[in-house]
């Protein structure tokens, strides 16, 4: 399931829902990204409705294939996000733990620099757009 939302969400509830009734998966891994304060008043995330969901679905499909996932769920915030709120939740289910862990890592690397989102930080010195860092680009290149 791919979901973009402009509302805060409950990561624990989402994890419970994802695990419910799952008897074939030996492993569920999760990654939760949280907005850091960094001296600012928060973030604003912009997406391209329709295109962003379809690009994330493409990334999720490649992860499912590469890591033999049984299921994957990605929830990503858009709009204004205050420090401490969740930004992104990635959940993966597989037969064994290694694939579930690695798929979370892969999905986050792709979401950081290859999914259509644009992030503006509202800091003490005003607003500025955040570009992917050299580390983000290096992280995603590991999977090429």
């Amino acid at each position: 399931m791919i979901r973009l939302t402009d509302q805060s969400f409950d990561p624990g509830g989402e994890l419970n829902d994802f695990c419910r009734g799952r008897s074939q998966a030996g492993a569920v891994a999760s990654f939760l990204g949280i907005a850091r304060r960094d001296g600012g008043e928060g973030l604003e995330l912009e997406a391209y409705p329709g295109f962003t969901e379809s690009e994330i679905a493409r990334i999720a499909e490649s992860a499912s294939e590469r890591f033999s996932l049984q299921d994957v769920s990605i929830i990503h915030r858009v709009g204004r996000i205050t420090p401490g709120e969740p930004i992104v939740l990635v959940l993966t289910a597989s037969a064994h733990r290694r694939e579930a862990f690695e798929a979370c890592d892969y999905l986050m690397d792709y979401l950081k620099s290859r999914a259509p989102f644009w992030k503006k930080e509202h800091g003490p010195d005003g607003e500025h757009w955040i570009e992917p860092t050299a580390r983000d680009l290096g992280d995603v290149a590991r999977w090429d």
Binding site: F51, H76, L111, S113, R114, P116, W118, K119, W129, P132
Partner: peptide, 10 residues
């Protein structure tokens, strides 16, 4: 047609 700067999610 959409023009998009470097992407940055997560």
């Amino acid at each position: 047609v959409a023009f998009m700067p470097a992407m940055s999610g997560g």
